[in-house]
Computed example of a mutant assay.
Amino acid sequence: MRVLVTDLDGTLLGGTDFERGLLRAVLARHPEIAVVFATGRGLTSVREVLRDPLVPRPRWVIADVGATVAGGTGLRPVADLQAGLRAGWPGAARVRHALSRFPALIFQADVVQDGRCSFYLRPENLTDELRAAVAALGCSWAYSADRFLDVLPARASKGAAVQALARAQGWAPSDLLVAGDSLNDLSMYGIGAHGVVVGDAEPALLRAVAADARVYSAPRAGAAGILAALRNLG
């Protein structure tokens, strides 16, 4: 295993300070393992996370639920990869206008967004009509935690961004361990990589990957779950 691709909230940032510090120490002893963040946060929020001394330094960051790819040093976008993921994106203004007829959608005005349009939405309001409206825009979507709806460029997802980065770096799927805890991580488990779903994960994610022998369901939450998966892989 050469690369750890990990979600942040509930995954890398989850668990006790002791567990998080232990994971950081293990990764520091193995600099041959490249760390990649794959998060729903934007780059501005990732910069805040990187101030935490318990957070390992990433070599790359996948942000905005897969619409952004940046280098870990300086968080400068990787222009060619990002352009491919965002191809056909109509822009947030057009998305918001087209979806304004759905009053149950509440725009996440408190979240800095780039290459995506994010809303709060209750599960019962994720209707076929809304899905069709998103498709008519030429967009895809991700829904997680029974309240977060991200409207994305058609080619963008965490999994698609990981695949694009892997091709650029020459990584095989077997080189990767992907770690997550919510449904917006699901696309990462479909790329042929090793996987871990950490403890206290969203039940819908656990159900979705239950039949995949490559995915380990960790009994411990957050950083401790990642550590358990690293031990399993040797």
Rank of each mutant, 00 (worst) to 15 (best):
A213L: 08
R155K: 15
E202H: 05
A98S: 14
Y189R: 09
T6R: 03
A136F: 00
D80V: 14
A166F: 01
L183P: 03
F18V: 15
G192I: 02
L43M: 09
V61S: 03
A132M: 00
L121D: 03
P153T: 01
L27E: 05
T44G: 15
G72P: 12
A142I: 08
D7T: 04
L4A: 06
A87S: 14
V134C: 10
A223N: 07
I191V: 13
G91V: 03
T6G: 07
V35F: 13
I226G: 08
T68P: 06
G225M: 07
A28R: 14
R47A: 14
V55S: 08
L206T: 15
Y143T: 12
G190K: 11
V65R: 03
G192K: 05
E202L: 05
F102D: 02
A154W: 11
G195T: 02
A63T: 09
G14E: 11
D9F: 10
D200F: 06
F119M: 08
R57I: 10
P58D: 11
H194Y: 02
A104F: 01
V26D: 03
A172T: 12
A224N: 08
V197R: 05
D150P: 11
E124F: 07
A83N: 12
R96N: 07
W89C: 06
W141V: 06
S118L: 13
M1F: 05
A145R: 11
G84I: 10
W141Y: 15
T11R: 12
G40R: 09
G180D: 08
A133H: 00
G222A: 04
Y120P: 00
G170H: 04
L152G: 06
V55A: 09
V162P: 14
R59A: 14
G199T: 00
L22Q: 15
P58W: 11
F102Y: 04
A25F: 01
D114V: 01
